[in-house]
Amino acid sequence: MSLAIETRQLSRYFNDFRAVNEINLSVERGTFYGFLGPNGAGKSTTIKMLTGLLAPSGGEMLVLGKNVSDPKEALEVKRHVGVIPENLSLFDNLTAREFLTFVGRMYLLPRDTVRTRSNELLELLGLDNEDKKLTLEYSHGMKKKLALAAALLPNPDLLFLDEPFEGVDAVTSRVIRDLLAGYVARGSTVFLTTHILEIVEKLCTHVGIIVRGCLVEQASMESIRQGLSLEDRFLQVAGGDEAVAPKISWLEGAAS
């Protein structure tokens, strides 16, 4: 099976700090890949590099078989990729429908296709009644939903989702999960970061765990779990089970 994402010794330094340290990712096409790690482990930095939002300090990146560090190949790759970045990418002064139209035009989709897909996505995500609202008036959850709609609009082969479930209500979360499951079932690839391990356990076929910039585990869900729950296994790999909370006497004694 060919790889949707492949990195070799991919690194990113911020001055002396190694945010991502020579990681070798292998994400096969048609997989639902969960990229896990504690806060500040380098998940978002990796996604930013893979989607062209941040230049790597070293190493190679192949997305859908093309080198995204090469400007010409990067544009070709972006035609087949949808992204929800960490801090979203919305224009404050456009409505949801206008923003989706703009995105559709950027991907050179026919006008009718943009309209049909926009209507379906907005209805599915419950944004179809907000036609007059500008995105600056949206709540954080609504912005996430709109970003997801924009990422799905071009019907990409690969989706990068950085914390897509953060701030999204339970009903929409279920809708998104079903949508993504169907999307992967037809052969597309999802690269997802989230802190909600239950979602990863339910959806992902493969998992990578990054700790302090290093990729410490990368395998199929079954291989990773080794008979444990994903949470136990994650804590084991990330070192969470070793950390014993120091005793704080004044917190454990009688309240003052």
């Binding site: 939002l53 544009l75 990418s89 995105v103 950027m106």
Partner: peptide
Amino acid sequence: YDRAGFRAFVMGPVP
């Protein structure tokens, strides 16, 4: 003046 919206240009496939 695009602020976060500029990401859409960087991530997009537009020459």
